[in-house]
Nucleic acid binder design. Sequence first.
DNA 1: GATCATCGTCGATACGCATCGATGATTCGA
DNA 2: TCGAATCATCGATGCGTATCGACGATGATC
Lengths: 340, 340
Amino acid sequence: MPTSKDVAEAAGVAQSTVSYVLSGKRPISEKTRKKVEAAIEQLTYQPNAGARALASRKTRVIGLVIPFIPELHMASIMEFVSVIANTARQHDHDILLVTEDEGAPGLRRVVGQQICDGLILMQVEGNDERLPVVRSLNVPVVLIGIPRDPTGLVCIDADFEMAGDQCVRDLAAAGHSVVSVIDWQPEVVDRHVNYVDRFMRGTDKAAGELGVTVLHLPGGTDRDVIADSVDKALAKTTGSPAFIAPDGTVQDLLRRVLSSRGLTPGVDVSVIGSASPTLADLQPIPLTTIDLRPAEVSRRAVKIICQLLEADSQGPHESLELVPTVITHRSSTLRPPRGA
Amino acid sequence: MPTSKDVAEAAGVAQSTVSYVLSGKRPISEKTRKKVEAAIEQLTYQPNAGARALASRKTRVIGLVIPFIPELHMASIMEFVSVIANTARQHDHDILLVTEDEGAPGLRRVVGQQICDGLILMQVEGNDERLPVVRSLNVPVVLIGIPRDPTGLVCIDADFEMAGDQCVRDLAAAGHSVVSVIDWQPEVVDRHVNYVDRFMRGTDKAAGELGVTVLHLPGGTDRDVIADSVDKALAKTTGSPAFIAPDGTVQDLLRRVLSSRGLTPGVDVSVIGSASPTLADLQPIPLTTIDLRPAEVSRRAVKIICQLLEADSQGPHESLELVPTVITHRSSTLRPPRGA
DNA sequence: GATCATCGTCGATACGCATCGATGATTCGA
DNA sequence: TCGAATCATCGATGCGTATCGACGATGATC
């Protein structure tokens, strides 16, 4: 592997000049720049990341802490990961994978060994055990998810409260007076993953304002549980039933159960699921969706951390950003009554 | 951040001694070792990765090239990624994400800048454009998937031929004389992803030996396409129909179509899907599955590359490893006729 | 009891780059 | 026409670790 010294010799300049050509931190004459660039090209020189990190104290690597809970809808996680990785590259950074299994010590490790300059944590829970560690690390950290106490933390997430509100308003406008929310998996609910609460707050607030009834029913990966929830909802509903299934896996089951009850979404029942446009296209039926904007959340998370990294900010920054959600009408919901 | 020099001072020894305590590459007396370890503990010293990489020419990082094709079943990819990351940690390595979007130049970049010591490529296609680059890189690379010409490459994958064979044999034993394979997404088939061919070879070979008819019908994310395939299959089937759906997304659609045709898996029709045990548990019905062992494939891929890294092997190694697949009977297939 | 290997530790050096201060070359104004 | 200011480049140094050669101390050998 050629080094910057080799490039310097080939170009007939000093090594430091090569460095300045690359960084642009000092003016370089057009002539020397050309010479150096030619030498770089010819030797196919690429700067050594280790040496660069050692000298500059920046690795240009961001640690991404990913969850692996089988109960989570894995396809959505992959969408986060993929967009985060690509966005990071656009900001000239790389992504190091840190699995949740490593826990808090894992965070200390990658930061302590200076393998990465900052962290993005996915699936942050309300009372996440890693938060004390995060606060004590002297590097920028961006959380995807809003913990109970966001003091001193930088957080971003979809605006789940808005999502809940939008769903209920939308269904109310379509003429439903009772709206049933099929919850996330119990494993997720029990973890007090904070977005569940926020979503509920949104649905309930809108329900109160509109005089609509909202039922919260258990979800899960068990078909019987969903079936039970659906039957309960049907029993308590006057008029045409309406369902919201914010979890991808629950969605699939709900569809099956409804079909077994002889109900067709968009005809005699309304269903709103959650899906990004990418995933919505893969749905078996055109599903009216609440888009929680995973790609946008991911992009902003990367952008924020890159800003923090550039600013070289040591102080305990704090911010909370909520990404607006979007309802897209497809044919799984009833159309509003005329004149409404 | 404390350095090894700080540790040395605290322990009253030379910096090199600290280094030898950590690496164990030279004998150290019990007494000194204790002193050094105490100092490390007290200062919470962690070696600097950049400096280490610079001096040792090893980053202990493995680049993982992940695909992001919406047509692929994302949940399965996530399973690979997650197991690979965890296994790498067990071998004291980290995983750097490289997205497919970066293409061949991306591979050159991470290797050229010496950000990682080796690569794992997922979703390698039959005639992958990255192969020439892979061959020219002077670092170990493990491919998950078998390209058309594996000369000079290290490959590992599930034994798709075995999988196809197992599925057909199993369904034949259950009394089916016609077996319909619903293909992967056309996007996948068109890419000549090589496992499709291998799977087909397995089904056809077994069919020939057993005197069974195998139909290959188009799959995809379009429900109508699947419905069409199912209807064709039903038309050509005498006796009870049997389906194999090796793609996760296709599986979901197949279930819906069958149900709309009044067919119940395990009662009047057999269905074999592909799923690892982890994912099978999330299925809405107990699906008889062919397990393509993603976790095992991932584990072995990491193990292989770590061995290559230790061996510090420069020469163009070559190997091809196929992981045996496993059929698990659940209630979506008919039971063999008595006496069979 | 002198010789020689072995053991444990130290000091020095290299890894490849970024960065700072210094220096020579050039330009500008008075 | 000379000093000041600016510009372009160079040389030297440090980043934190791994590793090699050297060296004193210890124990074994005949």
